[in-house]
Design a protein around this nucleic acid. Structure first.
Lengths: 209, 209
DNA sequence: TATTGTTATACTCTATAACTATA
DNA sequence: TATAGTTATAGAGTATAACAATA
């Protein structure tokens, strides 16, 4: 099996009287990760955390979390989809998708319109503001993507996308009859603290147009 | 979803009067993911979720979460490490590491021993029970790893480990002076609901041997 | 009866502040 | 003053149950 996990070069151990920030760096390089260094799950999680950290930092300028970005991209590409279609596509439970969408609608980026034929569902569309923002998001995303792949190069990126695509193609067929979601990115953030007492719109309780 | 997971092959399309579980499958295949399909972060997250789902299912037999497994592996490989060294190595904040370690100690898998020279810290070791379990964990892990990589093969796995290793090697140098943690896997689970009122052991308040 | 959107709620994971004991 | 371990708590993220409106 793979032999990635290059050794830490550093001697490790004995003298423990260094100072400040070096401590953490040493702790990290001195410890032998064992099979974790060859564990796809472990390394996947680490890489994902690092990439998301860069994403979050990059998109802090527009105050958007990964999940919010994903929703905007999906709606931008597929105008008119129902909430359940978007949430299912993103592996987000429809129940958790509500406040996520709320945050985007409250900011005037997305609109829940009346779906023709089925008065239970909402047709999702980007607003003009949302479309404009999405254009900028694409630029921010490109910067982020380039930064993320500096270490592996474009060739490495292509390989990685291919490998991940093949892995993801597998474990998707599950999808239980009723709740098929599962959550992929990261939901809302806006949800005001004191929302008790207030009410919203949309089907299920209000709007009933 | 432990094994295989065959594709839905289904054609997918216009007629929207199908039934039961097919709905979710359709929603997923009908939606255009746009740039998300070329987004390293998005695909990384999906793959990580799928892999962890298999891991959790596999290790449910021994009632261990990914983070707990990681800790056992680290301690098994590096006996005598301090809590802060292990938590830093795993990018878990030392504050969140406490209950995580508690769960392992309560189950008699790990022991917090007195560290020589510094009475503030704990030297972590596996118990006999912990060592025995770790041997089985390696087998479970190997099964899990093989299952996870069925779609990409051993060659693909080697490529993936190499790419992820290169990516992870990058964004780690940060590590702020004080709290250098960040959390990698998934902490405890044992933490009984009604623990209010009870007290523990170890430095910081008790033990003070 | 089944589906869509929703609310309420609980549990897991992650983050920050502050405290004790020790260095 | 700084560090190791701890506690309490807040905040995201994710999960389940149940309800109204509609199909």
């Amino acid at each position: 099996m793979a032999e990635a996990v290059r050794k830490s070069s550093r001697k490790r151990g004995e003298d423990s009287h260094h100072s400040d920030a070096e401590a953490a760096a040493d702790d990290r390089s001195a410890v032998d990760l064992g099979i974790l260094g060859e564990s796809v799950g472990f390394l996947l999680k680490r890489a994902q955390m690092a990439v998301f950290a860069d994403f979050i930092e990059t998109f802090a300028a527009v105050d958007l979390r990964p999940a919010q970005f994903s929703v905007l991209v999906i709606i931008g590409r597929n105008p008119g989809l129902k909430q359940s279609q978007v949430s299912t596509a993103l592996n987000i439970k429809r129940t958790n998708f509500v406040p996520l969408l709320d945050s985007l609608e409250e900011r005037g980026l997305v609109a829940r319109k009346l779906a023709v034929g089925d008065r239970r569902s909402h047709a999702l569309h980007l607003t003009a503001k949302g479309s404009t923002l999405l254009a900028e998001l694409h630029r921010l995303w490109a910067d982020h993507e380039r930064r993320i792949c500096e270490q592996i190069g474009m060739d490495g990126r292509d390989q990685l996308l291919s490998l991940l695509g093949r892995m993801n193609a597998a474990g998707n067929a599950s999808a239980s009859p009723d709740d098929a979601d599962e959550a992929d990115a990261a939901p809302a953030k806006a949800r005001a603290k004191g929302q008790a007492g207030g009410q919203a719109k949309g089907p299920g309780r209000r709007k009933s147009g």
